[in-house]
Nucleic acid binder design. Sequence first.
DNA 1: GCAGCGCTGGAAAGCGCTTTCCCGCCACGC
DNA 2: GCGTGGCGGGAAAGCGCTTTCCAGCGCTGC
Lengths: 338, 338
Amino acid sequence: MSARQVTLAEVAKQAGVSLATASRVLNGSTRQVSGELSDRVLHTAEQLGYVPNASAQALARNSSSLVGLVVHDITDPYFSCIAAGVTRVAEEAGLVVVLGTTGRRPEREVELLSTLRAHRARAVVLAGSRTTDRASQSRLAAEIDAFTEQGGRVACVSQAKLGTDTVVPGNRAGGRALARALTELGHKKFAVLGGPSELVVARDRLAGFKAGLADAGVTPPVVFNGAFTRDGGYAAAMELLASKSRATCVFAVTDVMAMGAMAALRERGVRVPEDMSIAGFDDIPTLRDTVPALSTVRLPLEEMGEIAAGLVLDGGGDEARTVRVAGEVVLRASTAHN
Amino acid sequence: MSARQVTLAEVAKQAGVSLATASRVLNGSTRQVSGELSDRVLHTAEQLGYVPNASAQALARNSSSLVGLVVHDITDPYFSCIAAGVTRVAEEAGLVVVLGTTGRRPEREVELLSTLRAHRARAVVLAGSRTTDRASQSRLAAEIDAFTEQGGRVACVSQAKLGTDTVVPGNRAGGRALARALTELGHKKFAVLGGPSELVVARDRLAGFKAGLADAGVTPPVVFNGAFTRDGGYAAAMELLASKSRATCVFAVTDVMAMGAMAALRERGVRVPEDMSIAGFDDIPTLRDTVPALSTVRLPLEEMGEIAAGLVLDGGGDEARTVRVAGEVVLRASTAHN
DNA sequence: GCAGCGCTGGAAAGCGCTTTCCCGCCACGC
DNA sequence: GCGTGGCGGGAAAGCGCTTTCCAGCGCTGC
């Protein structure tokens, strides 16, 4: 166990060259090394099973090959899709992604960013949804500053205005388009299962939805708030049911919430879509196959992850760039004419 | 941009102490430092916003705080659940997890392990399912050896016999129990949607299932193989349908495959469970809420991740430990009496 | 024929931290 | 009184690598 690891120095000695030469051969240096020496080094490195010590390289070069990825909950399909996009791009670039999960605690986000800073990660993608809570927001901002000061880049998914590169989904526009599509189905009374009110994503989607209803001259929806999770959707739907609202169509601001809501409806014997239409937002893959298939606003989740990673790795200019991705209304079996 | 980062040396100078003292204060050294100096160091560190350079620490200590996690596809709920367990434990231990995805390519697994070795990761959890392919298996074994030689620990989820710590789900036993439960429902003709034949997980589950049928004196199932994915399940189910088999109950060796299979059945107008019962394996969370809810063998996925992480971080003895976790048959709406 | 240049190889100075080793100091004990 | 430890502090030697700087050498151009 624990045989000493092969170092560059050993390779160099074995190959009969200097440390400098070995280093130049084994890592794309600008300097040329004659073919013969080069071969010798390559050969002995291979033979000894040499693997460069990434920490030492990072230290010497003052830059690491780590890319951070911060999500709330990796089991949430929304995040795991984004994660897939990010890792794909990062791995193609020869980088390594470190995954941090916050469990929706803002302070964890700050901690993770600090850890990532300690590791001199060259970039980080923040995929957690931003809150409007003043205190945590400013601490996060401070940490982001510290990170960029240090030469790291940070990109956010779906949370603009932090002075960072951002990929923002058309939350407002998507909500609005969805509302219009649903009113065209003939619905007049709507309910919304909103997320926690301090999440801007939830607010934007709700605001867009309201705007869409207004466009169509339909009365504003009743709103029930719940956590941004399956259980939150379940609970909010239960509240809705208890409220004796006359809504014929309910919009859950998140597919995952819609999933919970459908479970609640089913449990209470409310048929979807006959008794109640329901729509979500995100278009997470699993819900395309369920019965009934969920109407939703499709977001190119993996692509969003790729874009974010691209932004953050492209070096990029000094100023914050914003990439908007549009949501596309997809009406499926969970919404019916009224 | 890129203001120079605060180093320990700066903190030490500012606080008027030596480098050694500052180091001792800011990292749990065995050595004591007097209260006054200690306070001064802590204070200036805080004030300067000092964050230790993890690469330098790793180099000096010859050990990093990285834990690797290798999965096939992070969007697959099976893997994302395990990932959640692993990250939770790692983060509690103050470690950082680096996520690698293989896209089911064995050679990527080897590459990732090598990268992890370069980073001197202290441990790695391999969650991808093992293949029986000789060549890739031996390269993987070599890489694992190199990794452990270097002092790193590795644990596998659901793939034993690699000389590493392992958490193995009761694939065989689970398959068997499921088969018995299904025969008790009165089914006589079974079909199985198996994974690629070189995956041992798939083989074990299938073998167990066959054994269970044999126990009950039921004729062996027809088997249709497909990829270990939703689409693989879909394709295999289509084959099954085309085959005009008389099966009344189908077992998909994976919940994710079952999901695809249900989509295929639905598309072809086969009602579940009236025309065909279906069961899966894993009990991924999303499928508990679908209609019909999927019968399956429940595996404590997150817990398995936690256990694996625990094994790999506990230091552990020299010899490979194996933790078995049992699967529990859960019959839901997707399987009916026959 | 020689200054000057481009090119390759090596010596060595770090990168930011940990840790060993040493030193001075104080409290004891004989 | 002085030797003995124990203890807190600092100097300095690395950890494994990159990269600057310099030396040597064979050319070209006048």
